[in-house]
Write a protein that binds this DNA or RNA. Structure first.
Lengths: 192, 192, 192, 192
DNA sequence: CATGAATGAGCCTTCATTCAT
DNA sequence: AATGAATGAAGGCTCATTCAT
């Protein structure tokens, strides 16, 4: 056991903190531990006890999203059409990033506050990597992109969708930009 | 000229401020007027006199870069190959954004502090739009991207190149990502 | 109680802040939270935690004075002589304003920082209004002044007493000016 | 000659400064030499040359008003009815103070920046003193107010009219408050 | 005389973090 | 465990005044 099991009330506190942090993130408000403490009507100390830094809390907020993406990826691995599998996975990924600010922040962060986050990000990478390899094996991927580029590219697509775009239109824009990336902006120049 | 020409010494001070701000930006340090004042050994008031906000200073730092990009675009308009012209312009753009943090920040900003910046951004947009239209007319562009998407997409490519990439490799990565976007990640699925 | 009762030490700090603010006010120095923090040797943050604005602190400093005035007014309501009751109340009011800069400032302020202040000012108004009505009913008040004029007039009397008057003489001067206002500067012109 | 005669252009500059300062005062904006300089499109230095301090400029702005009041007082001295003369003068005075922020500020100020201001204030005092003495001699003034109280009392009336009163209603309110002061708020208690 | 750039003290306010209770 | 008061560095900005040009 890594951590001692939390006392029931402590566990409940922790959950309330995370729930409220989720709201803060969804509001687009920067995540501050003091702010969260006030919102959950707990002392700052309590919040700090559970989450040593704002990043740790943010990653905890992001975790279910990361898990869900990985789970989706796992299911996609069962898809017989490798292109469809990869496309579906990536679509889901950018949609999630555009919808959930904790995911875009955590995905793009160079370092993690929690080991658990690193683990989740690796799981996700791994699934992406497998989907990518299958697509490669099926010759549906051009050569000059590697599996390592998937995360940065998805972060970029999500970022692009936020630039000069009204919030309501971002999910749709993200889908369009992903499509552009997958299919290419330029028509193939066929040399006869 | 809208504003009275600056006195020689004032002009020199102004230039020193911009030069130091350039360094701050290149360092990756957030641009703060107090910090700049300390670095140039001037009173804060002097810096504030020249630049009422950090954004104004940042945009001033970015201006030459924006001009250079527009100039490049103008020259590209003379290129007889529309695809090459557009590609060259976009390559230059993402390289610049990845190399110069003021450009990525200013490009993605929804509002401008200086009218001059708005003007420069419009020039740049306009050039991009013309290059795009030519490419469209030459049937080298797929339909579902419009000229309005160029800026967001370039911001996204530059952003992607910064994610999980060592500084030294960013320019090269940006070029790769742009290529991926232009040519498409997936092979076209030809239905026979 | 609306707010949780303060911890003992916090309460002591709060009191020290108010006490020092009282001194600052009595000195005639403008009330600044930073200044108060320095004088009580606490971090600025502590002072800001207790009082979000200088106005809030000023009103807290003024509160006991406002309460005392209202209390005096309540007692005056028991006086059988309506003119004496009103006069006594008003005398007390201008004396207080002239003696305590927080009272004149808070009384004249168009808006309040603390709900408690609004409440206290309303109490005070209400008492004045009742005393005034009694005097009216007893026909000892001329018609062209209303209860709404009492506060402005008292502020004016206190202000007048501060103009070109040495501090030591101000209370006495305020009484004289109030008497002038009540009795009239001009002799009644009796038309036979 | 106290001061060397100004060169024509310097004199014109001076006048423009005063005119703009008048506007600033009428706007209710605090009078700042930098601000005035900008508005008249002159260097701050020029404004400082003409007016060493904001007070000096304010007093210069107030001067015509002070002169007009004194002039009115002089004419009032010719009035055969001493009560009417005094009343008219005081009415004019409070109206002026309520209408012109420079007059209330300069009147209440304990010290003057310009000798000229001291002189004007003395003239005005002197006229008031004479009107008051006449009224006294005619037995239309109660005893417990002296000529020295006139200025403070008028400042107080003007101040009272500004407390909790909408700008548009201030002149009328000031007149009412002056009437109250002159005639008394309380009915004379006649002991039979 | 006129200019206006430069100064920098000084005020306001926020926030991440600690630690006594 | 929980609390939340205290901290104080740090950043933002204004403005009266001076002085080199």
């Amino acid at each position: 056991m890594t951590t001692a099991p939390l006392r029931k009330d402590a566990a409940r506190n922790r959950e309330r903190i995370v729930a409220v942090a989720r709201e803060v993130v969804d509001e687009g408000t920067p995540l501050q531990l003091n702010d969260v403490a006030r919102r959950v009507s707990m002392g700052v100390g309590t919040v700090y006890r559970h989450f040593p830094t704002a990043e740790a809390l943010l990653e905890t907020v992001a975790a279910p999203g990361l898990e869900a993406l990985a789970a989706h990826g796992e299911r996609a691995l069962a898809d017989e059409d490798p292109a469809r599998a990869l496309t579906g996975f990536l679509t889901r990924t950018v949609e999630a990033q555009v919808t959930d600010a904790s995911l875009s922040a955590v995905s793009a962060a160079p370092t993690d506050a929690l080991p658990r986050t690193t683990e989740l990000k690796q799981n996700l990478s791994s699934v992406g990597r497998q989907l990518f390899r299958r697509a490669l094996d099926a010759d549906v991927v051009r050569a000059d992109v590697t599996a390592d580029d998937l995360v940065p590219l998805m972060c970029g697509v999500a970022y692009a969708a936020n630039v000069h775009t009204a919030p309501a239109a971002r999910a749709e824009t993200a889908r369009r930009y992903l499509a552009a990336l997958l299919e290419g902006v330029l028509v193939d120049r066929v040399t006869p």
